[in-house]
Write a protein that binds this DNA or RNA. Structure first.
Lengths: 251, 251
DNA sequence: CGCACCGTTCGGTCCCGATCGAAATGTGCG
DNA sequence: CGCACATTTCGATCGGGACCGAACGGTGCG
């Protein structure tokens, strides 16, 4: 029963044209159908068929605006699957020693959907916990019985905002209140495939990335989704977080 | 250029028969081709063709033994993709509040091959660590073993038996000595996709499940691999472990 | 050695779905 | 209203690949 679903979902990614469209959307943009047709190199008719299937499968979300219809990835899970599929192709079978500059740079810092992933993302996460901005909940011994069984599945929210969150985030150039006012879930977490830890997503994750870009700590790298830590950024992260960079610190 | 690779890898998962085989292997077992053909419901000829493609893509690893050839997942990435694909199907588009009894029950307790997985599995694991039955070893610093793709299933051995293991296990109705005498590896660990933690497999995991069934703490549910926590079981687990919550089921 | 069995290779059939052109729907604009 | 443009629907074509039966190498066993 599992297998049929796995196969049918995988089939959505298994077509070149669809894969092109999905990859084009992986950074979180919303693009109109015509643009996606061009990206995929197919006629509007074909593209429309594909887009319809992807929306029906809840893989894409669509928003009508005038005579355009803008498509975007429905959620981070879609981005994650694409990322994992791509990860399978890169390295041969097993992580070799010199899997090269490319994968390694990607591991150091990259954007995941619209927030910071990679080692830097994990390091930031740790720093936020250390500062009390985030506090782990229900991780180890804490019984979560009183909570009703349907809410808050464990993997989703292993952390909550601490009492000093607002103050702590100010140091990062993030105004917590406006993030919370944005109407998007503030806290969300992704598992990172390079490090086996959570990194921060959601509204707060996005705000942090925005702030880091604005402050000049991070700039976009030559490749899609690649983030480069500037000198100023390194100085900052070294001070505030324990930024690993070149040397790997045990996760 | 990314997209082509994504599509071609995804295509490997996009066939029902292949998906069945991969799902059958997801717990880390090694199975002979004939068994996989049966699992997939195809003739040996067809299965062989599929298996060849999967090996060529470094998705499966194969080991010849006598006149059998045993296939297993090549590494964790393959398992992760399967899990992610499955995760996409469960919940509708966005993690809604009531993402439903089904996925949630699935997460609570289920059997994985012959041991207990899901939240209950993870909770038991934690309790065993807390009691000193298991002690974590080399979690962080130990270098990954040199490329040796042929040995031991994917998950490493992050835990070893503690000195008070035998006493601690007695409370669970498990006789450690007879488990070790059974000639099967006592300790083995699986990564769980619902919780991102290890749960206990191997001979000891199997013994725990047997014991829990015998004591009436768990009974098999209507679906395959579904485990239901009885009242007596709840009482016991509440006392010994920090058991998460209510009903249970699995896939 | 010969038989039984596991697994792979080969050749041929058949179906699903990706694609396009043409036509239909729907929206914005003058 | 009528034209321009974005998008979707329809019908038809065509190729890739999933599948099987049969034949072909190995391996174990008596």
């Amino acid at each position: 029963m599992w297998d049929a679903q796995v196969a049918s979902v995988a089939a959505l990614f298994a077509d070149r044209a669809r894969a092109r469209m999905l990859v084009a959307l992986i950074d979180g943009r919303s693009l109109p159908a015509s643009r996606l047709a061009a990206e995929a190199g197919v006629t509007p008719a074909t593209a429309s068929s594909h887009l319809g299937r992807l929306v029906e499968a809840h893989l894409l979300a669509v928003e009508s605006s005038g005579r355009h219809r803008f498509y975007r990835l429905a959620d981070e899970r879609a981005a994650r699957v694409i990322e994992d599929l791509a990860a399978m192709t890169d390295l041969p079978p097993i992580t070799s020693l010199r899997d090269g500059t490319r994968a390694n740079r990607l591991r150091t810092a990259r954007s995941c959907y619209d927030h910071i992933a990679g080692r830097l993302g994990v390091a930031i996460m740790r720093a936020l916990v250390a500062d009390g901005v985030l506090v782990p909940v229900g991780h180890a011994g804490i019984a979560r019985r009183p909570a009703d069984p349907l809410s808050a599945p464990l993997p989703d929210r292993p952390y909550a905002l601490g009492s000093k969150a607002a103050d702590g985030l100010a140091a990062w150039g993030v105004d917590l209140r406006s993030v919370e006012a944005a109407g998007r879930p503030t806290l969300r977490f992704c598992m990172d495939w390079t490090e086996q830890c959570h990194h921060l997503g959601g509204g707060l994750g996005a705000a942090l990335l925005t702030s880091a870009r604005g402050a000049g700590w991070l700039v976009d790298g030559p490749r899609r989704r690649e983030l480069v830590v500037t000198d100023a950024g390194r100085e900052f992260f070294d001070r505030v977080a324990a930024q690993p960079d070149s040397a790997a610190s045990g996760s």
